[in-house]
Amino acid sequence: MSGAAPPLISGACRDALETWLSHIRALQGASDNTVTAYGGDVRDFLAFMTLHLGGPQGLGALAQISTGDMRAWMAATRADGVGPRSLARKLSSVKTFYRWLAEREGFEPTAVLSARAPKFTQKLPRPLSEDAAKAVLDTVALQSQTPWVAARDVAVVTLLYGLGLRISEALSLKGRDAPLPDVLRILGKGQKERMVPVLPVARDAVAHYLKLCPFPLEADGPMFRGVRGGALSPNLIQKTVAQTRAQLGLPATATPHALRHSFATHLLEAGGDLRSIQELLGHASLSTTQNYTAVDTAHLMDVYRRAHPKA
């Protein structure tokens, strides 16, 4: 529904939404991307209710939304081509907003909170094999004939696989972070801070890039630059990795984020414990990290059989 211009939302609803977004940004430390996603999901919901209920509605009307209204919204959203996973995310955003609004306005949000998200199959991470990950690192440099650009791409990809960084985290590094220390302080999702050990290969890759980079290294400026000197766009790294996987004949699941998955999986295979991997990845919940245990069950069972005295 977000593709069309939304109908007018009442001023009271709009003000409540902006107040809530400010609340989660300031008090919960939500990232800009999270706030933007929440805002879009709830605005689409309010826009639908404007049409569904016959005109701009105030906060009182929101308190009266029924189970049937929720079903109508979910059906319309699915009809717009939104998949079950995305609808579940939108419903979660609306419920989070309603919990806050109900407490603030003093009404019972049962109809909204009792709405059930559609079932969907949980997609587990699709890591690369160790050989494939190494091949990506070796081949990324071939995607550009400009030496400093090739070195830059190698440095970024090495940070994704060697340190388990998100692409946004790697590209958020500043000039003051060079040379990379033995342990790097990373500010991840929700402003959650973690400390990540830096492998020599990653430190060397970044140092090589900085030696070739034609732009001056400024303390508050981006470490990784585009060809015109501005901050490097994540899309360029995604494009470079896409070219690399095509050259190597790897599946479409071999994305920059898959390198982060590979970092975690290979640590697990090498005997790393989930708690330590959780801290390195910056996951808020261990259950998120536990997804990696399903990636290579055969390997884990082999370890179990060899280690267990009665296996």
Rank of each mutant, 00 (worst) to 15 (best):
Gly190His: 04
Pro214Cys: 05
Val206Cys: 05
Pro179Cys: 08
Lys211His: 15
Leu236Pro: 00
Leu173Arg: 08
Gln191Val: 03
Lys189Ala: 05
Lys211Asn: 10
Leu184Ser: 07
Lys174His: 06
Pro234Val: 09
Ala252Tyr: 03
Leu187Arg: 05
Leu212Cys: 05
Val241Pro: 01
Lys192Trp: 01
Ala219Phe: 01
Phe224Trp: 12
Lys192Arg: 14
Phe224Ile: 03
Thr240Leu: 02
Ala205Lys: 04
Arg176Asn: 08
Pro197Val: 13
Ala231Glu: 11
Pro200Leu: 07
Arg194Phe: 10
Gly221Glu: 14
Leu236Asn: 03
Arg203Asn: 09
Met223Thr: 11
Ala242Thr: 11
Ala254Ile: 06
Met223Ile: 10
Ala242Arg: 13
Leu248Ser: 11
Gly226Lys: 07
Ala219Gly: 09
Leu212Pro: 05
Val196Asn: 02
Val241Gln: 03
Val241Gly: 01
Ala254Gln: 08
Leu210Met: 06
Gly226His: 00
Leu199Cys: 07
Ala252Phe: 02
Asp177Phe: 04
Gln247Phe: 02
Asp220Gln: 12
Leu210Ala: 04
Arg185Tyr: 05
Ala246Glu: 15
Arg203Ala: 15
Pro251Thr: 07
Pro216Gln: 10
Met195Ser: 15
Gln238Ala: 12
Ala231Gly: 12
Lys189Ile: 02
Thr240Gly: 01
Arg176Trp: 02
Val183Glu: 05
Arg185Phe: 05
Ile186Val: 15
Arg245Ala: 00
Gly230Ile: 08
Met223His: 06
Val201Leu: 14
Met223Arg: 06
Leu184Gln: 04
Val206Ile: 07
Ala207Met: 14
Gly221His: 08
Met195Ile: 15
Asp204Glu: 15
Gly226Pro: 01
Leu217Met: 10
Gly175Ala: 00
Leu180Arg: 04
Leu248Arg: 13
Lys239Asp: 05
Leu232His: 07
Val227Gly: 00
Lys189Leu: 09
Phe224Thr: 11
Arg203Cys: 09
Pro179Thr: 14
Pro251Phe: 08
Ile186Phe: 03
Leu210His: 03
Lys189His: 07
Met195Pro: 01
Gly221Arg: 15
Lys192Tyr: 06
Arg228Met: 03
Arg203Pro: 00
Pro234Ile: 10
Val183Arg: 14
Leu248Ile: 04
Pro181Glu: 02
Leu199Trp: 11
Val198Asp: 11
Thr253Val: 11
Pro251Cys: 09
Gln243His: 05
Tyr209Leu: 10
Gln191Asn: 15
Gln238Arg: 14
Arg185Met: 14
Val198Cys: 07
Ala178Cys: 06
Ala205Thr: 10
Gly230Glu: 13
Glu193Cys: 12
Lys174Val: 00
Val196Arg: 02
His208Arg: 11
Lys189Gly: 12
Ile237Val: 14
Arg225Thr: 06
Leu210Val: 12
Arg203Gly: 13
Thr244Pro: 12
Leu248Ala: 13
Pro251His: 11
Ile237Asn: 01
Val241Glu: 00
Lys192Asp: 11
Val201Thr: 08
Leu173Tyr: 03
Leu187Gln: 08
Ala207Tyr: 11
Leu232Asp: 03
Ala254Met: 13
Leu212Asp: 14
Leu236Gly: 00
Val227Cys: 02
Leu184His: 10
Pro197Glu: 15
Gly175Cys: 10
Ala178Asn: 07
Leu236Cys: 00
Pro181Tyr: 13
Pro181Cys: 06
Ala178Ile: 03
Pro181Thr: 08
Gly190Gln: 12
Ala202Cys: 14
Ala242Tyr: 00
Cys213Asn: 10
